[in-house]
Simulated scan of single mutants.
Amino acid sequence: MSDLPEYYFRIRENGAALFRVDTQNRQRRIEMTELAAINVKNGNVRAHGDHVLTDEEKAVITEWITERREVLAERDLDDIHRAVDYLNLTTHWAQSRASDEDLEDVTDRLLLAMHDLRSVLVRKKADRLMKGG
């Protein structure tokens, strides 16, 4: 069990809880002591209870926040690429397999979502073109 990391991050919706992992006890059980709650979006770190974070713990948290933000940004971009695939699959479905009832159920919501997306994309593209030229 000595291969376990010293710290463990339990992922939460907006961040994580940081735990210290301890196997150096008489029973050789894994014990986890909560040290802090971390909000990855705004960078807030709250020590758990009356625990005072050490410099090492602060450094571990800072490194984790940086890495976690990178992972989340990669996932966001991957989700967008998947959305493009879904749009193409949806087009094929609407053209080849959807019943009239299916289309009636989704058409208005899809049209509004696509209109909203198109408006944002066109405005953002225009902003980029104005900055570049």
Results as ranks from 00 to 15, higher is better:
Y7H: 08
Y7G: 00
R10N: 06
I11Q: 12
R12H: 05
E13I: 10
E13V: 09
G15S: 05
A16W: 07
A16G: 03
A17W: 08
L18W: 08
F19K: 01
V21L: 13
V21F: 04
V21A: 07
Q24E: 13
R26M: 07
T33I: 13
E34V: 03
L35F: 08
L35P: 03
A36Y: 07
A36G: 07
A37C: 11
I38Y: 08
N39I: 03
V40I: 15
V40A: 09
V40N: 02
K41R: 14
N42E: 03
N44P: 03
N44G: 10
N44E: 08
N44R: 05
V45I: 14
V45T: 09
V45E: 00
R46P: 00
R46Y: 15
A47N: 04
H48D: 04
H48N: 13
H48Y: 15
G49S: 06
D50P: 00
H51W: 14
V52C: 04
L53A: 03
T54R: 00
D55A: 12
E56T: 12
E57W: 00
K58I: 01
A59H: 03
V60N: 00
T62W: 01
W64R: 00
T66A: 11
R68Y: 12
V71L: 14
L72I: 10
L72E: 11
L72K: 12
L72H: 04
A73S: 06
A73P: 02
R75I: 13
D76T: 06
D76L: 14
L77P: 01
L77G: 03
D78C: 06
D79P: 02
I80A: 05
R82T: 14
D85H: 15
D85G: 04
Y86V: 07
L87W: 10
L87S: 10
L87H: 14
L89S: 06
T90E: 04
H92C: 11
R97V: 05
A98S: 09
D100N: 09
D102V: 04
D102L: 07
E104C: 04
D105H: 13
V106P: 00
V106M: 02
T107K: 14
D108A: 13
L110N: 02
M114K: 09
M114L: 15
D116G: 04
L117F: 05
R118Q: 07
R123Q: 14
A126E: 15
A126W: 05
D127H: 09
R128F: 14
R128A: 13
L129F: 12
L129K: 11
G132T: 10
G133E: 06
